[in-house]
Amino acid sequence: MTDASQRAIKWSYMDHWRSNGPSGPVDQWHSHKTMSAFLKQVKAVGFDAIDTFDFRIWQMYGDYGGPAKYQEMVTDHGLERIVNTFHAADYDTRTYAPHLPETHENILEDFRVTMGRWSEIQLDNIIVMPATLYYDMEPVTEDKLKHTAELWNKVGEITAGFGVKLTCHHEFFCGIQSEPDIDTFYSYTDPQYVNLFVDTAQHCIAGLDPVALYNKHAHRVSGFHFKDTRHVATGDDHRHRPDSEIMAPTTGKWFYEMGTPQGLVDFEAMMTAVRDNGYTGWISVEHDKANKEGGDYSESTAISRWYAKNVLEEIYR
């Protein structure tokens, strides 16, 4: 068996999770006991590390004593570390809208403070949605894309000062989600400071081919969310307040694990592209809202890890 440190690809688990408690779904951050059970399950099926959300830092401070202390718990359960954190900002156009220059200083200060908090541990990426929700940015113009790029170039300089990559994740309801807008955005950003984080399902829902998008921008890609979908957004699916993933009336459940029947993402082609582009390092598996319509997080996690080991790792040896 190959040692994890020698493998070209390692697998991190993005920590969306719910388990069933006596009073309903229980978040793994509910207690040290529920966190321990979560970490044991993730490790048992063969993941190497975890990703988390930026807002979890408050629970790390309150329940564990900070990011370094929480990471000690992660490593005590046999996982390597925390690889990435997702900066889930509140995109309020009054204070936090990348296409509006008057909000930039507030966003920059947010990242100065945020990176200081995380400096106890070494992250690979801080992941951002690079634009407001689509309905707050439309119409998407070249000037708006330029303003947005200018902001993230500056944010990327801040994160680089802490040894962390700034990487952009394009949800299907994000202001920058079409292929032409994504291409324009990256043409205005500095490759030294702004990277792309490919979410296979989100791009597919937005009507893009995630494999083709990755091949086009492979030199800018610093990570992946591997998850599947059975649906492409139609009509105004990407325009529903406050969250299109929940509010779009056409689709009850957007996201599925790798290996799901009727999945639209060609993961074998994606893994072939990952190999052929020479990508090495971490791939994150994500199960966003896996428990909708009778789904189960632990089941989805086990199935996706089986798929990663028995299908994808056979492609990338």
Score class of each variant (00 low, 15 high):
I182G: 02
L208A: 14
S31G: 06
V128G: 04
G161T: 04
A131C: 02
E299R: 15
L312F: 07
I107E: 12
H217E: 10
V285G: 02
I107C: 06
Y279M: 01
H87Q: 06
P98H: 08
L213V: 08
V274R: 14
R7Q: 09
R56E: 03
Q41M: 08
H77L: 05
D243G: 00
R305T: 01
W29Q: 10
E72F: 09
E72Y: 01
G116S: 05
N291E: 09
T52E: 04
K227R: 09
T85N: 15
P249G: 11
V311Q: 06
F162A: 01
E105T: 13
L39V: 01
L312I: 05
S284A: 09
F173V: 00
H16R: 08
D228H: 04
W17Q: 14
N106F: 02
F172G: 05
R241M: 09
C174T: 04
P249L: 09
T301V: 02
A218K: 14
G78K: 14
W17R: 15
E257Y: 14
F224V: 01
A8K: 14
L39G: 04
M129P: 03
E268C: 05
A290E: 00
W282C: 03
G161V: 04
H99P: 06
G65I: 09
A97K: 12
A4F: 06
S36M: 11
V26C: 02
G263T: 00
E138V: 08
V211R: 06
Y188S: 09
G235E: 06
E109H: 12
F255I: 02
I50T: 02
E245P: 01
A233L: 09
E142T: 08
W306D: 08
L123E: 06
W118I: 04
D209H: 14
I315W: 15
L151T: 03
I303H: 07
E299L: 09
H77I: 02
P191E: 13
Y135A: 05
H147R: 14
R117I: 00
N153Q: 14
W254T: 01
T93R: 15
Q177S: 10
N277D: 06
R81W: 02
K43F: 11
F53C: 10
G163V: 03
F162D: 02
Y64R: 13
I107L: 11
H30L: 07
A131I: 01
M129D: 15
G65E: 02
A131S: 00
Y297M: 06
T184L: 13
P130F: 09
T167I: 06
K216G: 04
T167C: 08
D15M: 03
E72L: 00
H169K: 04
H170W: 10
S300F: 03
M271K: 08
K40Q: 10
T85I: 05
F267H: 13
S304R: 05
G294Y: 10
E293T: 05
K43Q: 08
T229K: 14
G263M: 09
D48G: 07
I158Y: 13
H147K: 11
E105K: 10
N215K: 15
A49R: 15
T75C: 07
H32K: 12
P210K: 13
A88K: 15
Q59M: 12
H219Y: 10
M1T: 07
H219Q: 12
D92V: 05
G252R: 06
A149K: 11
A88L: 14
